[in-house]
Design a protein around this nucleic acid. Structure first.
Lengths: 222, 222
DNA sequence: CGCATCCTTGAAGATGCTCAATTTCCGTGG
DNA sequence: CCACGGAAATTGAGCATCTTCAAGGATGCG
């Protein structure tokens, strides 16, 4: 994408590859000063923060290939914590290197801004979801997003493991655990999917897409 | 804030001042290519967009002093429309001038980024509101935000006109008109405020702040 | 001054929440 | 490797909140 081999190798030289961390361990916490941004290599991560009353708020789920820690790039302080949902390995890109490189490589700068504005668009669609959609639509939307994300990364989008707990899902979608659980069993009774614990197999993707309010065009080809 | 007189006059030279527009007229529409960003001089504005099914989604309300149109600064296409809620006058800052100036005035660049990240934080608090709070808490939160915004601009935060309709309020907060209306009457019965149509007088700000989940420290001083 | 829009209120119904009881799953230690 | 114990998930019953549908009243713009 407009980056030369030389530039790429300079970026590569700066990346720190880490040993995998285990489920439940965190990479950074809300309030930490921003030292680096992180790219997920494998596994998955949730970002979340704690409210004044002590309750947790899940801010998002992140798959391999995604960058996390960009949210607070200008405040110099992380706005949320990042916790591994399963064994996860990440790459670290020290922030001062990234800053230096992005002045040298305009395309990199632009790419970062693109990712940020994508993040904003995602926030907006979440707002829409929370303000107007039912429990079933919300869960369908999440499944759709995960499924599409996996397919883009050449994993199966029809059958996968949900690394996050029902609790996290509910928290993220503004629902209780019980409601999420009931939606899953309702989806199974309607033969939209099969769910055995965390193992999910989508059966009627068309119906699910419609529920999710998503264009099913680019999705349907298996 | 770190901008010299000379820099300020260069910025000033570039600003286009417009005649007031009337209630219900729009400044730009979602999908328009971004030519300028806009600063509200007086009046108020809602930003909103249309969903696939034709329904409207209110994205935000904006008071004098705020910048709008920044949301899509990097996509070059407005993500939402902007409509005057009352007679409103604005200043226009052509985007190409702003780009040129912000390379010359680093502090301006930084200020713009600060405003963007503030916007992102606002999105996040809205997500929280929608996923966890009751109708009363949501309305209290909106009143609190408007009230504080007015006080920061040296208007009365205790007594003001709500320029937006109950419909818009409900749409923004993920509630129906009827629920919003009922919350207002409930608030009146509890002597938290007085509402005659769009004219609002806050009576028990402490209680309202608590409902809004807001720190009441910087707010209470009249 | 009149019509359209906005606002309010009521009654009935639906959706999702709370509380409680099991069951299943999974990591840990024996 | 198995058994245990705690956490996660499921299910049910009752309930609170918000929505929907319907009607009447206020408001304000042309």
């Amino acid at each position: 994408m407009g980056i030369t081999d030389d530039q790429l190798s300079r970026l590569d030289a700066v990346i720190v590859r880490h040993a995998p961390i285990k489920k439940g361990r965190h990479w950074y916490r809300a309030g930490d000063t921003v030292q680096s941004i992180y790219a997920i290599r494998s596994g998955s991560v949730k970002t979340h923060y704690t409210l004044e009353d002590g309750a947790e708020q899940v801010a998002g789920f992140h798959l391999p290939g995604e960058l996390i820690g960009l949210d607070a790039i200008y405040t110099r302080e992380h706005g949320s914590s990042a916790t591994a949902l399963e064994t996860t390995s990440i790459c670290e890109i020290p922030f001062h290197h990234l800053e230096a490189l992005s002045t040298q490589i305009p395309e990199l700068q632009r790419q970062l801004l693109r990712i940020m504005s994508q993040e904003m668009r995602r926030d907006r669609s979440l707002i829409l979801l929370l303000s107007k959609k039912t429990a079933e639509q919300r869960v369908a939307w999440l499944l759709y997003r995960i499924s599409r994300g996996l397919e883009q990364r050449h994993y199966s989008g029809r059958e996968f493991f949900l690394s996050m707990s029902r609790n996290d899902i509910g928290n993220y979608l503004g629902l209780t655990v019980e409601t999420v659980s009931r939606v899953f069993t309702r989806f199974q009774r309607k033969n939209l999917l099969r769910a055995e614990g965390k193992h999910i197999a989508l059966l009627d993707t068309e119906h699910l897409c419609r529920l999710a309010g998503a264009p099913l065009a680019q999705y349907l080809p298996r």
